[in-house]
Structures are given as C-alpha cells and as structure tokens.
Amino acid sequence: MMLQGDCNYIVSGLERSGTSMMMQMLHSGGVPIAYTESRKADVNNPKGYFELEGGKIITSLMKGMFPIEKYQGKFIKITAYGLSYLPSTGKYKIIYMERNLEEVLDSMEKMSNVVDENREQTKQSFQRLNEKVKKEILSKENINVLFIHYNEMLKDPIPQVQRICEFLGTCEVDTAPMVSVVDKQLYRQRRV
C-alpha cells in the first residue's frame, strides 16, 4: 500500500506506551514504515524498537538536523518529547499511543534498571508533558491525530485496528497480521 507522499506519518506517545508495538503492527499490515537496526531488540523490547538514529531522533530534531522530508509517505517513530521540535511547516498524521501512566513508569524503571525515589514528581512531569504535547498537536491545523490506548489495544485489538485503517483512509491494510502482533505475553507492567 501507499501513503500520501506529501505527508509525514508518525507513531508517538510517551516512551514505553506501546509505540514499538504500533510500528510493528503497521509493518505487519503492509503499511510503509522507516527504521533501522541501529537499536537492537533486547529484553525490554524483544520484537525490536523500530527506531531511527539509534533512538536519538529527539536529539536530532532539537538541533534541527533531522531530515524529516526524506521520510514522507512512511511511518517513523518520534516519541512525545520530540513532537514539540517538528518543523512547523509540513503535513503530519500522528498515531499517538496512550497507556496507564503507572504502567509507563513501571516499565521505564525496569528498562533503566533504577528505582525512582521521586516517582510522584516524575509522574507529574510526564503527565504534564503528555497533556502539553497532546494540546499542541491537537491545536495545529497541519496535524491530524489518532489516539490509540495501549490497554484497549491489548484488551480487544480488532476495533482499534479498524480505527487505524479509517485514519489512514485505506482498506488495503492487512488487518489480520496486525492483530496477531498484539502479544499479551509482553504486557508485563500491568496495573489495570
């Protein structure tokens, strides 16, 4: 399938909110995505990260050095913090992943192998980041957003996959492989 060649497609959300899973789902469904193997799969993301620039795409965006036009017509992964640094010109379609914040923080702690002694403060900061970024992307006319909730996806993927197809405006997506990507065994930081 083909996506619009004049539009940048982005999977976003807070880190550990299911962005890699979404990239893998899109890939399985035949949706064009761009990534490199610069960040290898590991115990935290056994099926891969599906990232560019070794996961440091935010750093490149902050410096104005990421060639985003090169990736038009394909999904790329830019986590929430990086969205504030998108070039203001251009057309964007963003699938924004949401997840129970306690689960996100649990997963972050596990991945970085630290116990956060200021967890409540960290939670509030990420909550504010999430709200700020969502407000920003919703307020811009050149950005079209679809919110997908990780926990809803795990519970019942089929309706969520249908929402993605509607958002992309195509029926060419192979939905069965997308649904099969959703692996409940990888839902390890369960709070809900």
Partner: peptide, 30 residues
Amino acid sequence: SETEPEQKEALSKEDDERIKDRLRSLGYLD
C-alpha cells in the same frame, strides 16, 4: 522553548529537566 508563555505554563524547567534525565537513562536523548 524556555520563554514561550504557553510552554512555560505547561512544563516547568524542573519538569523539563526531570523528563530529559529520564529520557537519557532510557537511551532516547544524548
């Protein structure tokens, strides 16, 4: 980004530093 009123209101410098620290520890930021 530090002086834009809307952003300043939504995300304090402390929030920003806390988030950046966490992103660095996760390998998402230099």
